[in-house]
Design a protein around this nucleic acid. Structure first.
Lengths: 133, 133
DNA sequence: CGTGTAAATGATAACTATTCTCAAATAGGA
DNA sequence: TCCTATTTGAGAATAGTTATCATTTACACG
C-alpha cells in the first residue's frame, strides 16, 4: 500500500479526478482541474492516462459530445442525458435498460455484445427557457 | 419537379446516397461514393450539405465512431449495433426502446428530451472469430 | 435571349482534438 | 549509489472538420 507513493502521483490524480466528479469530463477539463495542484502536468499525460484507463476498463468513454471525448469514472452501466445547449452530461440513475433488450441484441447481431448505451439528448432544466430553476 | 435539374444536383446526390445505403456512412464515404459520378465534387461540399441536412432534420447523426462522424438517412428512431473491430454500424430493427423509458427520462431531467439513442457495441458476426459465417 | 443576384461549389487554408516522438526525469530494485 | 524500465513534458505531427473566398451556377426579370 506504500506503492502509491510517487511514481504514479499524476496518474492517480487523474483517476481520482474522474472518480470524484459527475460532470463526465473531457481530457481538457481534467487537465484544467489538475493544473493548480500539479502546475507542470502536461495535457499529453492526461490523454495518455485516460487512454490507458479506458483500455484497462478502469474508466469508460461516453463517446464524443460536440467533437470532444467525454469520460466517466463510473463503470457501472447507467443512462445518460446530454444537453445540446450546454453540453453537460447528466446521469439518469433511476432508468435502466431492460436486460431483455441486451439479450435480444446479442441474438439479433449474431455476434458478441459488450456494452449498451442508452442516451437521451435534449435541453437540460437549467438551459430550458420555460423552466429556469 | 423539373426543379431538380441542375442547381442541387450534387446536394440531391448526397442525400440520395445517404438514403440508399444502410452502412451509416461518414462524410468521406459519401465523398468516395459520389466521386466517380461527380468527379469534380469537393469534400467540403459533402461536409457542408451533411451539416445542412442534419440541421434541417433531414438526416441524423449517430455521433462519432472511432473519431469520425457517422450519419443515417433513416430518421426513424431505431437501435444500433457498432462493431468495435470493423467500425460497422448495423441496425437492430426488431428492438425498440420502451416509450415508458423516454417519458421517465423527460420527468427525471426536468428539461426537454428530444432524442433517444440505444446503442450496443461488440463484435459483429463477421468479425467474431468463433462465428465466421 | 442577355443581365443581375443570390446561392452553391471547389480549392485550400485554418482550426481543433488527439496522438506521436523523443529526450529528460523519476521510481524503485540491486 | 547505480541501473533499467517507466512516466512524463514539450512540442511536432496527424486527422477530421470547418471556414474562407473567388468562381460558377441557377433562375428570375427584363
Amino acid at each position: 500500500m506504500e506503492q502509491t507513493t510517487k511514481q504514479f502521483r499524476k496518474r492517480n490524480a487523474i483517476l481520482a479526478c474522474l472518480r470524484g466528479t459527475d460532470v463526465h469530463p473531457s481530457a481538457d477539463w481534467v487537465y484544467a482541474q489538475l493544473k493548480p495542484e500539479y502546475p507542470d502536468i502536461s495535457l499529453g499525460t492526461v490523454y495518455r492516462n485516460l487512454a490507458l484507463f479506458k483500455q484497462q476498463g478502469t474508466i469508460v468513454s461516453l463517446g464524443t459530445v460536440n467533437g470532444v471525448e467525454r469520460f466517466d469514472g463510473n463503470t457501472e452501466p447507467h443512462v445518460h442525458f446530454i444537453c445540446t445547449k450546454c453540453d453537460s452530461v447528466i446521469d439518469l440513475p433511476q432508468i435502466y435498460v431492460p436486460q431483455s433488450l441486451c439479450s435480444r441484441a446479442a441474438a439479433e447481431t449474431g455476434g458478441q455484445v459488450n456494452t449498451c448505451h442508452l442516451t437521451f439528448t435534449g435541453v437540460c432544466r437549467w438551459c430550458h427557457p420555460n423552466e429556469n430553476q
